[in-house]
Amino acid sequence: MTQSLEDYIEAIYILSRETGYTRVKGIAEKLHVSRPSVIQALKHLSENGFITQERYGYIHLTETGKQTATQVLKRHQTLTQFLITLGVSPEVAEKDACRIEHVVSQETMNTIEKFLHSQTKPKKRK
């Protein structure tokens, strides 16, 4: 899946959680792209089994689409939290995480998750 399609599937997932539904207009507004761009991306997502769409209506993630979207969103949230932990401002961390999430290896993600988990464990007192 391309970086662009990952952004679309993540946007569909977030919008459906926030509003209960997803439409082309909402995706275009969220991603700051044109409606024709959204329609083209939706065609690819549908052909690959990630979404279903009612004609001129709501967009729904398939089970595969939901799994993919949650993985993309988790990477995004983990990277954002990691960058904030390092001292990056939340605004910059959010933007950078969006770029990094598409190229980071699974090994690096696992290491970042372990690091963040170790930071949230209560420290033992002597």
Rank of each mutant, 00 (worst) to 15 (best):
E91A: 07
E10A: 08
E63T: 09
I112V: 14
I9W: 10
L61H: 01
P36K: 12
T64D: 11
L42M: 05
I9C: 01
H102F: 02
R17T: 12
S118L: 14
S16D: 12
I51T: 09
T52G: 01
E54W: 08
L45Q: 03
T52S: 01
H76I: 03
E10T: 03
V38A: 00
K66I: 15
T120K: 14
E6D: 09
T62Q: 04
E63N: 03
L86M: 11
V24P: 00
V72D: 14
L5S: 15
T62H: 06
T80R: 12
E6Q: 03
E91Y: 02
L42T: 11
I100K: 03
T2R: 02
K66A: 08
K30I: 11
P90C: 06
H76W: 04
T111F: 09
Y56S: 10
K43P: 01
D7H: 15
F50K: 06
E18C: 04
N48K: 14
Q3L: 12
T52F: 12
K95S: 07
H102Q: 07
E6W: 04
I39A: 15
G65F: 05
T78L: 09
L86R: 09
G87Q: 01
K25A: 00
Q3A: 14
Y56I: 02
T108Q: 07
Y8P: 10
T2S: 09
R125Q: 15
H60S: 11
V33Y: 02
G26E: 05
K126H: 13
N48Y: 10
F82G: 01
E63A: 06
R125M: 12
G26W: 06
A28R: 05
K114G: 06
E113D: 08
E47V: 04
K74T: 08
A28W: 00
D96F: 00
E54V: 06
T2M: 13
P36G: 08
L15H: 11
I14R: 01
Q3D: 09
Y56M: 01
T22I: 04
G20D: 01
K121P: 07
I27V: 10
V72F: 07
L73P: 02
T22R: 14
A11M: 14
A28P: 05
I12Q: 05
L42D: 04
F82E: 03
L31K: 03
Y8W: 11
